[in-house]
């Protein structure tokens, strides 16, 4: 059996309790040591990504090989990250990943948070255009690619689209005039 965190032979089989439920981990010596006595992690923030990576890898457990291969090939149209890359590094590529991988992420979110819906703070300027703004990532990328293949017609079309969104960036007016800026 291969280690769940790297490609070495798994020699440690740890049963970890998560919310009172036993959870099997198969790790090589190095990864097991890091798991049991996390090296130089001076705080919780730095440990969390490692945990997400572990969980993301566990996603693989429930899936058949073909299903996993299909999932892994999915690519975010905005930033270009594949689901496989996310599973490997435990970090997403752009805000749109939460939309385009929503089905794949849902079990992971449930596993981490027990919930799939936000109930907290709402940004004041929201409503504005967060999702439209995120499309800028795709447009800028496509423009760069168009320039690279010398498709200047397409590039200038994209540039206009980008400008339009950038100019609409203005947030809705807040109650107070920004006199103190």
């Amino acid at each position: 059996m291969k280690c769940q965190k790297c490609d070495k032979q798994a020699t440690f089989h740890i049963t970890d309790l998560v919310d009172g439920e036993p959870n099997e981990l198969h790790l090589c010596e190095d990864c097991a040591q890091a798991f049991l006595a996390p090296p130089s992690s001076s705080d919780a923030d730095e440990m969390m990504p490692a945990m997400a990576g572990l969980l993301a890898q566990q996603l693989a457990v429930g899936e058949t090989a073909e299903e996993l291969a299909r999932l892994d090939k999915q690519v975010c149209p905005v930033c270009g990250i594949s689901f496989r890359e996310f599973r490997k590094q435990g970090r997403l590529g752009c805000p749109y990943d939460y939309t385009c991988f929503s089905e794949e992420l849902e079990p992971l979110l449930l596993n981490i948070h027990d919930e799939t819906r936000h109930v907290g703070k709402v940004p004041k300027g929201f409503g504005a255009n967060a999702e439209q703004q995120t499309q800028l990532i795709r447009l800028r990328r496509e423009m760069k690619e168009a320039v690279a293949r010398e498709d200047y017609e397409q590039a200038s079309k994209l540039r206009d689209e980008i400008r339009e969104i950038e100019e609409s960036r203005q947030l809705p007016p807040t109650e107070q005039p920004p006199t103190d800026l």
């Binding site: 930033c79 270009g80 990250i81 590529g93 752009c94 805000p95 703004q133 800028l136």
Partner: peptide, 8 residues
């Protein structure tokens, strides 16, 4: 919103 996350 308008930039990729740090990894990308």
């Amino acid at each position: 919103a308008e930039f990729p996350f740090i990894a990308r």
